[in-house]
Amino acid sequence: MCSHYESVKDKETLKSHFSIDNIPDDVKEDLWPGYLGSFIRKTEDATSRELLPGSFGLIPHWATDTKIARHTYNARSETVAEKPSYRDAWRLGRRCIIPADAFYEPDWRSGKAIQTRISRADGKPMGIAGLWTGWKSPDGDILRSYTMLTINADMHPLKCLFHKPTDEKRMVVILPDDQYDDWMNAGVDDCREFLREYPADMLVAGPT
């Protein structure tokens, strides 16, 4: 599971790699659940992409406050269509891309949790598959939020090294660069075709 990641720090790289023009000013670069980050979605006319601020951790419309974001930052692909927190966003096709330079996982092979930074081997940003939604506060304000989709990684050559030995191994879904629009435009029945492991030799990991 991924509870800590870095957003893309270089604005020009963010614009060029993800083909977006707008960059929000009030988002954090070092993200934990409940922090204000950013996600990419289709524009309303579906002709281009836009980057929007949002809480890291999905806040469903029925939530009474934003504290739920501390528990909804990752959505399991196996249950995303049924879990109350995610099923509406999944059914309504509210798919997004979460731009990231890296994410962090604990390496327990030494018997202690060693915080480890994982990034693309080619140095390019990651486009992590996610879901987004909007939440209306009791005061009437609208807050957008997002979550990362995860898949089982027990057999992944790299991700199987992380988390406690007794824990299931999970990894976020990192999309190939040429599939960003396909992911956001796909019908619900076709979405699971994108939920695949990212090749281990295309990632690098090292202690922070």
Rank of each mutant, 00 (worst) to 15 (best):
Cys2Ala: 09
Glu6Arg: 14
Asp10Thr: 09
Asp10Cys: 04
Lys11Tyr: 14
Lys15Thr: 08
Ser16Asn: 14
Asp25Tyr: 12
Asp25Pro: 13
Val27Gly: 02
Leu36Val: 15
Ile40Glu: 07
Glu44Leu: 13
Asp45Ala: 05
Ala46Pro: 10
Pro53Lys: 03
Gly57Val: 09
Ile59Lys: 05
His61Lys: 13
Arg70Pro: 12
Tyr73Lys: 01
Tyr73Phe: 07
Asn74Leu: 06
Ala89Val: 00
Ala89Asp: 01
Trp90Pro: 07
Trp90Thr: 03
Arg91Ile: 08
Leu92Cys: 13
Ile97Met: 04
Ala100Met: 01
Trp108Val: 02
Arg109Phe: 10
Gly111Cys: 05
Ile114Thr: 10
Arg117Gln: 03
Ala121Phe: 12
Lys124Thr: 12
Gly127Cys: 03
Ile128His: 00
Leu131Thr: 00
Thr133Glu: 13
Gly140Ile: 08
Ile142Ser: 07
Thr147Ile: 04
Met155His: 13
His156Asp: 10
Leu158Arg: 06
Lys159Cys: 14
Cys160Tyr: 15
Lys164Arg: 13
Glu168Phe: 05
Arg170His: 07
Met171Arg: 02
Met171Asn: 09
Val172Phe: 04
Val172Thr: 10
Val173Ser: 02
Pro176Lys: 04
Pro176Tyr: 00
Asp178Ile: 07
Asp182Ala: 14
Trp183Lys: 00
Met184Leu: 07
Ala186Ile: 09
Arg192Asp: 14
Phe194Ile: 05
Arg196Glu: 13
Ala200Ile: 01
Leu203Glu: 08
